[in-house]
Design a protein around this nucleic acid. Structure first.
Lengths: 213, 213
DNA sequence: ACCTGAACACCGTTCAAGT
DNA sequence: ACCTGAACACCGTTCAAGT
């Protein structure tokens, strides 16, 4: 067939299909050939739109970042409230696509939405009176916490069969096999507890170090 | 040659070589064939010791977990101090092997060292008077923070060329290209700031909710 | 510019064969 | 029990060829 009159593919169509595949079958299921098949196209076609598979994955991550709400930073709410809302929105975006989270390891890179996000958080903190160095650190540590909560989903990995938890080896884990029953509730609770602790701790530091306006 | 008198391989030798390869050249460089070559052995030999590549990766992660110091939990230090020491040791272990961090996504699974670690933290908190539900959450959220700090190394991904940060697009990131210069210092500072904030916040909660002994 | 089929070097894994 | 070579189905990517 060669080149069609109207292009069969676009970066956007490819990214959408890739994310769907990753969501449905996991990161390992995403091969360029499989993805091409899903798009009714031959394997090498993708290389007209992305130079490498890594570049495609980068775009997929950035599309997830694009789902994160940043509007709370434009409403001059107090910074802890804005940070709380943003962290929840960020976590919700990652939790909706858990299989992509390991790819976050590459850092913000050149992804426009990731940079927009970093910019918004940093701007909010500086405007609130945080010194720029502190604002950088706080932006980073909030990202740590959110990314970690999406990556290291705690309950998810505990085997469900009680036999694993030999009492002699793990004296305190006797009921850990029950965790799997309500894993998402535990992750949610741990996230909320950690978020509040983090904000409380940061507020203490703020009162100690930032002069009143 | 077939079977040698004394085995050429062992799980331990394979895990050590795999971690070395991952540290030196990244996760993508670890193929079963490449690893086998590194061990002067033919590809399929590994399957006498691990059922799949995933099982091997699991063992590699657990060996890193084995580097985490847990001795602070046996010294009846106050729980915030023990948690602080443990978090630092945990982070140091992951920072020493950053390329393996994405694999943590699989959760503690059946990895004995990961389970031992979860057990120690949980036990310390329960002994300090935290209700079991809270202790579970706190163990999880501490892991989130540490895993996230190793995964989402904030500064690492910022491109070094200033041209990326068009002032119109990212009004607050004008100096972000300088981050790369001292990325590890920033990550370290963000981790320490977050850790203190987290512990301060948890201590507040402790004083509010846990009755004095 | 954008798609195709053929091709290259490389995967993870299975299996029969050897000792 | 533990290693080997051969084989299978599958990768990411390149490239010349087509419109």
């Amino acid at each position: 067939m060669a080149r069609p009159r109207t292009p069969l593919l676009s970066r956007e169509r490819i990214v959408t299909a890739a994310l769907q595949l990753i969501d449905a079958e996991g990161l390992a299921a995403l091969s360029t050939r499989r993805l091409a098949t899903e798009l009714s196209v031959s394997g090498p076609s993708l290389y007209n739109h992305f130079a490498t598979k890594d570049e495609l994955l980068d775009a997929v991550v950035d599309s997830v970042m694009g789902e994160v709400d940043l509007s709370m930073f434009g409403r001059d709410a107090p910074w802890p409230a804005a940070l709380r809302d943003w962290a929840r929105s960020y976590r919700a975006a990652l939790a909706a696509h858990p299989n992509i989270v390991p790819v976050l390891a590459q850092g913000p890179g050149r992804r426009p939405n990731a940079l927009r996000l970093a910019d918004a958080v940093f701007g909010c903190l500086v405007e609130a009176g945080w010194p720029r160095g502190q604002a950088t650190r706080i932006g980073a540590l909030m990202r740590y916490f959110v990314a970690g909560s999406a990556l290291a989903s705690f309950a998810a990995g505990f085997p469900e069969d009680a036999g694993v938890y030999d009492a002699a080896d793990y004296p305190h884990l006797g009921e850990a096999h029950r965790l799997a029953e309500h894993r998402s509730a535990i992750d949610e609770g741990a996230f909320e507890t950690g978020l509040e602790a983090l904000l409380d701790g940061l507020l203490l530091r703020y009162e100690r170090t930032v002069p009143r306006p």
